[in-house]
Amino acid sequence: MPHLYLPIAGNSINVLVIFAVGGGVGLLSGIFGVGGGFLMTPLLIMLGIPPTVAAASDSNQIVGASTSGTLAHYRLGNVDFKMGILLLLGGVAGGTLGVQLIKILRASGNADFLINITYVVMLGFVGGYMFFESLQGLRKTEAAAAPPEPKDNAYARMMENLPWQTNFEKSGIRVSLMLPLFLGTMVGVLAAIMGVGGGFIMVPVMVYLLRMPMHVVVGTTLFQILFTCINVTIMQASTNHTVDFVLAVILLAGSTIGAQFGAKISRKMGGDQLKILLAVLVLLVMFKMLFHLLFPPEIMLAYMGGH
């Protein structure tokens, strides 16, 4: 078995196993368009990589993965740069705010409670909503006579009344500039608290709250994630020295190849089928977390940086 020593992780790994992990997560990402980070980091921890190194190196591999993804979607005209930049600005502000919030909470000893609860609630909410929404979608398709969506609800009216209404041509929507900035900030706060890129929260936010078309959502998320992860990689490397570049490259090779097969599977499935499967995946992760919260752990001490 070919082993490589990872100098930053301080452990040796089986190259084939790491390649397979990258491939497996890449396959799921290719199928669903989202969902690498929150699966990859726990898998790496299970393989003996320290939690802080696992998260930082995963960000490094996402830089590569989202570059090729953004390139592909840019060619197809699926990247709304204006929207992406606004969400990114909000995300950076929210991220900074979230990091400060965690610092204050850590000092008062309540950080881990908040992190765990945020995880479970967000995963449960996003997974649950997507599950029922796509289930309805599937039923509507079966009934073949979907009633028109009530467009004139309270949320839509409130959005229309916000100032600085702007056209987003690529997404084909007209909303206030404040909305993506505000939503980006919110996702940034949550992502910083949870220590993830925030892709799995950003996608539902774009689909349901900004009402962007799904194909533009995937391209724009990738564009935004690329910059978030470059920032995280450089910050982690300079302040905490936790980026293992060798690990990132092996994961990247695996995930890119996995994503190709995933994309092929994805094309053969309907949108609602995809959403319901992703919802199940998100809910499974949520139940796993809930299980760990409800049952006593095997060892009562743990290294810092894990959940």
Partner: peptide, 13 residues
Amino acid sequence: GMGLIFGGDGGSH
């Protein structure tokens, strides 16, 4: 490089 080889959808994110 991967994007050019596969011309595809990228990896996980």
